[in-house]
Nucleic acid binder design. Structure first.
Lengths: 206, 206
DNA sequence: TTCACTATTGGACGTGCGCGCAATAGAGTT
DNA sequence: AACTCTATTGCGCGCACGTCCAATAGTGAA
């Protein structure tokens, strides 16, 4: 196959692995799968990654980090806490996230047995919760939100969204996507003392 | 090894497989693992189960069904909707459930790629949600709960509990168990218009 | 054009997997 | 005590896995 410079090839491998893992699951992704996806030999992969575990860890980290960064950027476009929260919510509700969420399901399952995955998953979850905590704290300061328990409310919102995504992604057609979004919005609005629709009307274009 | 009658041996195999799967995860459980756990030869397993997939499906079904039945029984001990909901909540909060919940994490991860697992997981999730729907509907009739959207509130409660369990089980020490329980109770009480503490004070002994 | 460097190849190696099967042994019946 | 039935054994088969390594081939510098 065409010879590439190391940086490009490394990223090519990660992307090929991501594509395979999206189809088959992280733990079921093999060296030979990734090589075939790239159209190269399998030996090449170990020229860039010491082990398959290392490659899969990089794939998960990159997928999750990309998602988190994208959400941060959408939130930055809004000024008010309500607007930022609506941006967070809109990013969550985006159907494009289903593939990413499958990675989360895989990670949570693996976390019980794989130390590296557990730490990465845990740290990223905490970052997501912090994102919510900050905006909630800010909203309380401006008076847009009720004076709620910040930590509790942030974990509740994150857990509610995770739990609903789980149903939508793992069991398609059990809950229609629009209903899940509506129910999530109502719950979070109520928890923060926002008026009905506050979270879905203050939409920031993607 | 000692010769057993078929019914007993079959159940022995399922229990051994469950023990292994609890340690290593459903998808990482092998024929040889289960045989070693029982102290028998590996060939024996295929005398009772046509394939390893079939055995693992039975294990998951049994674990999940046992959990659901136990919760139903605890709820039946209470009379009022609030009492039943408190029983449901207490069953959820029981630390013994952590092992079972790991099976759920495995199942949700597998559901995306394995049709049999997805269907079983989906059906059981719907049963859990129905359990909540019934008690909420009943509570609205008696006037104990606000006149909420039953379907929405039941899915929100289930998702909130799943999302919080996920953090407790997959990332130990990120959320203390007691806090998760407190936050879950507050959220559900608020959603149903119950007074603070209604869900945790009406405790039915296990 | 030559040369050094290294990206890439392709297959070998050992391991562990699900599964199948002929041989063995224990329990119940006659 | 002889016999039948089948629970149980223990190993072999083919396959897929991660890893490794000597051989090959492109590319940029001299």
């Amino acid at each position: 196959m065409t010879r590439m410079n190391p940086g490009v090839r490394r990223q090519t491998i990660v992307e090929a692995a991501q594509a395979v893992a999206t189809r088959k699951g992280l733990s079921a992704t093999t060296v030979r799968d990734v090589a075939e996806e790239m159209g190269t030999s399998s030996g090449l992969i170990h020229h860039y990654f010491a082990s398959m575990d290392e490659l899969l860890a990089v794939v998960f980290a990159q997928v999750a980090q990309t998602d988190l960064s994208a959400t941060r950027e959408r939130m930055d476009l809004a000024d008010s806490p309500t607007g930022k929260l609506a941006a967070y919510f809109a990013a969550w509700a985006d159907p494009d996230n289903d593939e990413t969420f499958q990675f989360w399901l895989d990670a949570w399952s693996e976390a019980g047995r794989n130390d590296a995955v557990r730490e990465r998953s845990r740290d990223l979850n905490i970052e997501w919760q912090s994102l919510l905590s900050e905006v909630i704290r800010h909203g309380i300061e401006t008076g847009e939100f009720d004076d709620v328990d910040v930590e509790a409310t942030a974990w509740r919102a994150l857990s509610l969204l995770d739990g609903l995504s789980l149903q939508v992604v793992a069991h398609p057609a059990v809950i229609e996507r629009e209903k899940a979004a509506k129910w999530a919005a109502s719950g979070i609005e109520k928890d923060l003392g926002l008026s009905h629709g506050a979270l879905t009307e203050a939409i920031i274009p993607a």
